[in-house]
Amino acid sequence: MKNLDQLEKEFQEKIDRGENIEPKDWMPPAYRKTHIRQISQHAHSEVVGMLPEGNWITRAPSLRRKVALLAKIQDEAGHGLYLYSATETLGISRDELYEQLHSGKAKYSSIFNYPALTWADMGAIGWLVDGAAIINQVMLTRTSYGPYARAMVRICKEESFHQRQGYEIMMTLARGTEVQKQMAQDALNRWWWPSLMMFGPPDAESTHTEQSMKWKIKRKTNDELRQQMVDNTVPQAEFIGLTVPDPDLKWNEERGHYDFGEINWDEFWQVVKGHGPCNKERMDARRKAWSEGEWVRDAAVAYAEKKEKRQMAKAV
């Protein structure tokens, strides 16, 4: 029997060689715990992320917009399923994961605690929120835990249309009437900073970054990813004639990156702690869906058990 130090050393060597960790491999308890936290948080974000958009399906301005929005939201349900499945491979049940979400023990991305006030928000969410998610998720396709990395490959393929349909909405509004342009600008104003917060606290204050980098759970730090988001997005906003709401934003020739203003981290922590504009509404909607769906889950289990019994009876 190998001792713990030996196992940990071999585990780290495997990661350093660039090999994936698979569900039945030995892993340090903290690696398992971190992944359960991170992947389930990601799954919860997909599921809660459907709520701000769901409201707009019936109010989409055309059939083209409606089918795209419906498909996007359907994808998010699917992404939640893949990610819950990936979390279950670490030895936690789906019910426990839901319980953690509904009790408030588990977090989801704080961005979904902001309201979607106008149709332009569907554009801003696709363009900025999915844009930020893609930057994070492309990195995660090379994360060390196999099931998570594979889920990310699939999800990234699907996310690409989400971002483009969002940008198309913004572009159309920005080229429309003065009122439509203002609507697009207002959505950008409200979603810009929360989108930058999606990458998490600054590196200096991030409690998980160092160990996550060592275990190749993350390949880039929060600040690196955030910089990439700013660098990608600012020219996209300029192209459609919208103004990024940051007076300190300017191109830094020397660094080859945009410099940008200070993020309001007090707001970020307030929302994380449950005091965002829609935290309560989102959780109430989730709990309601869970309790109202109970009879469906019970019926599915009863049906599966009945079939199982019949098959057993046939076999003997």
Partner: peptide, 19 residues
Amino acid sequence: DKPYRHPTFYDMPNEVKHI
């Protein structure tokens, strides 16, 4: 028959990168 599920369904101007 769901072309709107594919990124190429949405026309992105050539000038727009990283999308």
